[in-house]
Simulated scan of single mutants.
Amino acid sequence: MKFAEFHPGQQISAGPYEVTEAEVLQFARAYDPQWFHTDPAAAAQGRFGGLIASGWHTCAMAMRLAVDAALHDSESFASPGVANIRWPRPVRPGDRLSLRATVIEVRRSSQKPTLGILRWRWQLFTAEGQEALDLEATSLFKLAAD
């Protein structure tokens, strides 16, 4: 999507994305090697009753869906960050996740008119409707001068 196509209140959907055990293990072993992400047998005896994906992996899955749905072929070039990351429910192998992105704000920078700023809320939901991720992202877009 192009920057001009975004507007406040707009909802963008993407998915589903099926989470595999191999992917959970691979990500966790490389980036978040805690036992409840990397050891299925130990995780089965733990607080969550089974293997769960890293929260950072969950964010990466949301990023993939956001790119597929809206950022691919856009003028987006960076993000200064995200706010209020929450993981209300762990993601597990076998989950089918869908993204709902809600546009909060769309504006041009007052100091740099060739800079577009998009603030949007990303939520990931399981096929059963359980929320697994909630965050607010800011995306920057390079725009042509008027």
Rank of each mutant, 00 (worst) to 15 (best):
M1Q: 13
K2S: 08
K2F: 13
F3R: 13
A4V: 14
A4Q: 15
E5W: 10
E5T: 13
E5L: 12
F6E: 10
Q11K: 15
S13Q: 11
G15D: 03
Y17S: 08
E18Y: 00
E18L: 00
T20P: 01
A22P: 03
A22G: 05
A22V: 02
Q26I: 01
R29H: 02
A30Y: 00
D32I: 00
W35H: 01
F36N: 01
F36R: 00
H37E: 02
T38K: 01
D39R: 01
P40W: 03
P40H: 01
P40I: 00
A42E: 06
A42L: 03
A42I: 05
A43L: 01
A43C: 02
A44E: 07
Q45G: 07
G46P: 04
R47P: 08
F48N: 06
F48A: 06
G49P: 04
G50T: 05
L51N: 09
L51G: 07
I52C: 05
W56N: 09
T58I: 03
A60F: 04
A62K: 04
A62V: 05
M63V: 09
R64I: 11
A66Y: 11
A69G: 10
A70P: 11
L71M: 09
E75K: 14
S76N: 15
F77Q: 11
A78R: 11
P80S: 07
N84Y: 14
I85H: 14
I85M: 15
R86D: 12
P88I: 11
R89W: 13
R92M: 09
G94I: 13
D95M: 08
L97I: 12
L97N: 13
R100A: 11
A101T: 12
E105C: 07
K112P: 00
K112W: 03
G116I: 00
R119E: 11
R119M: 04
W122V: 02
W122E: 09
A127G: 06
G129R: 07
G129V: 04
G129S: 02
E131Y: 01
D134S: 15
D134P: 04
E136L: 12
E136Q: 14
E136G: 08
A137F: 08
F141N: 13
F141M: 08
K142T: 10
L143W: 14
A145C: 10
D146N: 10
